[in-house]
């Protein structure tokens, strides 16, 4: 396992050197986007409309934060850990292909469609510790922009964030077709029989 400190946006070279199990800390700009934001962005793009941000230049963070305005009217992140990424599996590949994003941040892993897109278009998936919302907020230095707030609400809208040493993000999908979580899922399924055996033994002893 290697640890890297990288600037955003990631270069193709950055992406290529990363392997599953590595941990990275990133500095630069990211944007929060979950189910509705992905859907809305792709819908607008299909209609040929201009989008408020360039998703290709930003790290994509699966996150629905708690934000609060201070006295001056400026937004601050109170808490902002990752949300479950697998919900975005249904359109993440098209998203990567359409916008050229190189870094997807979330938790829980993603599936085969995203894995193929990461390999084909040179992107990686990094996992931030689920639930560690205050650690995430600590890495956010400034809330730069907010879009679609009225349309999608606080958790679902786009928050553009300036982050510093944001991480660790464990590489769950690399740009070489490897998926840590899929591999581990197979191991998990195979070990079910050993778990069953423990139950069988207990039930037998109870009879």
């Amino acid at each position: 396992m290697a640890i890297y400190h990288l600037q955003l946006p990631l270069s193709e070279e950055d992406v290529k050197k990363l392997q599953i199990g590595d941990n990275i800390y990133v500095t630069g700009k990211i944007v929060t986007a979950r189910d509705d934001a992905h859907k809305h962005a792709l819908d607008l793009h299909a209609k040929g409309e201009t989008l408020p941000v360039n998703f290709g230049e930003l790290g994509i963070f699966h996150c629905g934060p708690i934000m609060q305005k201070d006295e001056t009217g400026k937004w601050n992140m109170v808490a902002g850990g990752p949300t479950t990424s697998n919900r975005m599996e249904i359109f993440q590949d098209i998203f990567i292909e359409t916008f050229g994003s190189r870094l997807i941040i979330g938790k829980g892993g993603m599936g085969p469609r995203t894995t193929v897109a990461c390999e084909k278009f040179g992107a990686v998936y990094g996992m931030f510790t689920g639930g560690a919302a205050l650690l995430a907020a600590k890495g956010v230095k400034e809330v730069l922009e907010v879009h679609w707030y009225d349309l999608l609400g606080m958790p679902e809208c786009l928050w553009v964030l300036q982050v510093e040493e944001f991480g660790p993000l464990m590489i769950g999908i690399d740009a070489h077709g490897n998926n840590f979580f899929e591999e581990n899922r197979k191991k998990t399924m195979e070990s079910k029989k050993d778990a069953y055996a423990i139950i069988d033994k207990t039930l037998e002893a109870m009879h």
Binding site: N23, C63, G81, T129, G131, A132, P155
Partner: peptide
């Protein structure tokens, strides 16, 4: 190392939440 990073992050987050009285996870 990988597991240690995750569980340490969790424990650090729990401490931060207690100290600052802020939600430990954004999903309440």
């Amino acid at each position: 190392e990988g597991a240690l990073l995750q569980i340490s992050n969790i424990l650090d987050d729990v401490e931060l939440a207690r100290e600052t009285s802020a939600p430990m996870c954004q999903d309440t």
